[in-house]
Structure formats: C-alpha cells, structure tokens
C-alpha cells in the first residue's frame, strides 16, 4: 500500500520533470553542481575542517614522514619529540645510549605511520643521568599541550621519578597500535 503511493508519487514527479525540463537543462544543472562541489574545499568552512585533522596526521604529511631512518627528524615516531634524538647519541628510538638511563615516566602521544596509515601510541621517554647529547635536535609538537598541562608537554624534562634529573636525549618507543 505504502509502496504503491510512493511509486505513484515518484512517477508523477519524474513525468512532470520530463515535461518541463529539457535534457540540456539537466546536464547544465548537473555540471554546475559538480563544478560547485569541486570548489567547496576552497571555502573557509572546508579549510577549517581540514585544520581539525589529527595533529599526528598533519605532521606526517607536512614533514614527509618515513619509517626507515631513525636518525632523521622526519622518522615517523618523532611527531611529538622535542630534543636530541637518542638514535644520534649511541642509542636508538627506544634504547638509551650507554651511560644514561630511561626515565620511569613518560608522556604518551600518537603518530601516524605513513606506510600503513595507522596510528600508533608512542611513549616519549627521556634518557637521563648524563650531560646533554646535543646531536640531532628535532622539534615535533603534534598533540602537545601548553606547560600548564605538563602531562602532555614536551618542554619539560621527562626524567621525573628517576635517579637523575639530568637530560641526555629523547627516545620514542612504540607502546601499541591504536
């Protein structure tokens, strides 16, 4: 019963359209709609939506993140790393150089792996107890909060809870796949 009514309604609508509108008119309208849609991303509204994308994703695109060279600032795990790369100091992205020890505390952010398009949780853990390494200084700020929210800030020294507050370098261990 309902279907019959809908059927009738649509039949009437299409017949009326066919009678009133030329085919050219339809093609012109469709063309205008397509062209209009393609212009949408240029409008400020669309650009604002893009700006709201995950900061880790934005960083990966901007720096051309890669997954093979942990000694470069654009190695994908470093999207929120601020400091000297442990990889350049005799350690690795997840190992402290000899003579330094990993902080028992860290902050956890997330970066996009550009090769599988997945997000991974990364623990930013400083290696401490030895003078500043001063090699490969990199600054990633994806998802970072101002220092009044210290648990998500990378300007502070993450050696808290360890035996030494002397900063050596920054590590970036993967702690899980989101």
């Amino acid at each position: 019963m309902v279907m019959q009514v809908i059927d009738k309604l649509f039949e009437r609508m299409s017949r009326r359209t066919a009678q009133k509108m030329s085919r050219r008119n339809f093609v012109a309208t469709l063309g205008a709609a397509l062209a209009g849609a393609s212009m949408l991303p240029v409008l400020p509204v669309a650009r604002k939506a893009q700006a709201a994308e995950d900061p880790g994703v934005e960083w990966a695109k901007r720096v051309g993140a890669q997954t093979t060279d942990p000694k470069a600032c654009n190695y994908w795990r470093y999207c929120s790393s601020d400091g000297y790369l442990c990889s350049c100091c005799g350690g690795g992205p997840a190992t402290c150089p000899p003579g330094s020890t990993p902080s028992p505390t860290s902050w956890v952010g997330s970066c996009l792996n550009p090769d599988d398009g997945k997000m991974y949780l990364i623990a930013y853990r400083d290696c401490c107890g030895k003078d500043s390494c001063a090699q490969c200084s990199c600054l990633g700020t994806a998802g970072e909060m101002p220092s009044y929210r210290p648990q998500l800030n990378n300007d502070i020294i993450w050696c808290f809870g360890g035996s030494s507050m002397i900063y050596h370098c920054s590590s970036a261990a993967i702690v899980g796949q989101v």
């Binding site: 997954t67 093979t68 060279d69 942990p70 994908w76 795990r77 690795g92 992205p93 997840a94 505390t105 860290s106 902050w107 956890v108 952010g109 997330s110 792996n113 090769d115 599988d116 991974y120 949780l121 623990a123 648990q151 808290f160 809870g161 993967i174 702690v175 899980g176 796949q177 989101v178």
Partner: peptide, 30 residues
C-alpha cells in the same frame, strides 16, 4: 608493522582501543 626496528627486532605490540587507549594516553605515562 612498517617500521625498520619493529621488523628487525620482531617487537610484539599490543593493540589498544577504547578505555585502554584512553588510559594509555591520559594516565599511563606516570
């Protein structure tokens, strides 16, 4: 996992989601 170290070392990662992910992001660091 397309990452030079994860593959070389065979590191097994957990998959985290939901409340466990929120714990990771907001609590686990400390």
């Amino acid at each position: 996992v397309p990452d030079v170290l994860v593959r070389r070392n065979g590191t097994v990662l957990p998959r985290v989601s939901g409340a466990a992910e929120d714990y990771s992001r907001h609590c686990q660091g400390c």
